Amino acid sequence: MTYRIRVPATTANLGPGFDALGLALTLYNEFQIEEIASGIEVLGCDEIPLEENLIYTTIQKLFKQYHHEKQGVRVIPHHIDIPLSRGLGSSAACIAAGIAIANRAMGEPLKLEDMIQIGTALEGHPDNVVPALVGGMVASVHEADQVIYSKINIPKNLCFALMIPDFTVSTGEARKVLPEQYSKKDCIYNISRTALLVAAMGNGELEKLRYATGDRIHQSYRTKLIPGLEEIFQKAQSLRSKAEVISGSGSTLMAMIERDNTSFEQEMNIFLKTMEGGWQIKILENDDKGIQIYA
């Protein structure tokens, strides 16, 4: 039997919601899956050793954990559009895909909640893997090996402009630049902005997003890792963006724009061509379904 699986890109943090907020986007990795007699085969990824391939290692881990030996899988990349190490959840997408593939091969013993717990344990935090699995904008809490999450309504007239460079920023590198401690003032700043962001999204109050996406936990420390950030943010604001944030740990930057701001893409694209870094722009929407399996 053959089927396809599609998993969305995700953006995390959305400004103040460090390791807590995530959003699924209409950019996808799609794989063709073939059931085989036994074993795990991942084709078309020869540049990545199997022991470092997250789809392979995730499937292998679950097969071993559930003592599954009856049926194997062959994974064939079909469309791979999520760039690596750009703050768009490429690792979470691979982990989510691996869990879904293993679950299907084992006869689907895992419920969605099980998949979320496993994915978070493998990823280390829930902000990307939860929206990759369930879609939408999600607030997640990881406590005592349990993930509690809630989906957040997104205004229908809001879409997301992704400015993606040709250089990468590793998550490890982006975390090393962060301080070990924060002042009470900075913590209050982020708590209040995160609460405002959730409320403003749910109420459709786009005019409040600029205030709601303020951050003192990670973005200012990561600015030096992304040359051109300040200039791109300033240009986005001049083009009537509602807010600008680093997508995950970078290097991608994201602007929240109204759907009828039809000139944003063309004008930003012209500007990006003047910048070093090989920047490209994609206008994406919220993916509300998360991972999907097709016959």
Rank of each mutant, 00 (worst) to 15 (best):
H67A: 11
N286M: 15
L84Q: 14
C159N: 13
G89L: 09
H78D: 05
F233A: 00
N269D: 15
R86D: 02
L43G: 01
Q71H: 09
L27V: 03
A174H: 11
S192W: 04
H79P: 00
S192A: 15
D288L: 04
D19P: 08
Q219P: 02
A96W: 11
L206D: 03
I226A: 09
E231F: 00
I95G: 03
S251V: 06
P109N: 12
G15L: 01
I291S: 01
R259W: 00
V138Q: 06
F271P: 02
S85C: 08
C187P: 00
G290Y: 10
K282C: 07
G277E: 07
I217K: 00
G136I: 08
T262W: 10
Q237G: 00
T26S: 14
R6A: 14
E207D: 13
V130L: 05
C94T: 08
D46T: 08
H78T: 04
I95W: 14
I82R: 08
E173K: 13
E258K: 05
A139E: 03
N128C: 10
A132G: 12
A9D: 01
K282P: 04
C159V: 14
S249F: 11
A161V: 09
A144G: 07
S150W: 04
H142I: 00
Y66C: 10
L239N: 07
A92I: 05
N190Q: 10
S220G: 00
K111T: 14
I80K: 05
F31W: 06
I188L: 15
Q219R: 00
A212P: 09
A144S: 13
I152S: 07
T194L: 12
S251T: 08
A139L: 08
V141A: 13
Y66I: 11
A121N: 11
L162Q: 08
E180V: 02
A161G: 14
D215C: 13
G290D: 06
A139V: 13
E30I: 07
A195L: 12
E52H: 09
G124W: 02
R104F: 10
V141K: 04
Q32K: 15
G228S: 06
E267F: 14
I152L: 12
F233Y: 04
A195E: 01
E180W: 01
N157K: 07
E113D: 14
S238W: 00
K61G: 09
R175E: 15
I36D: 11
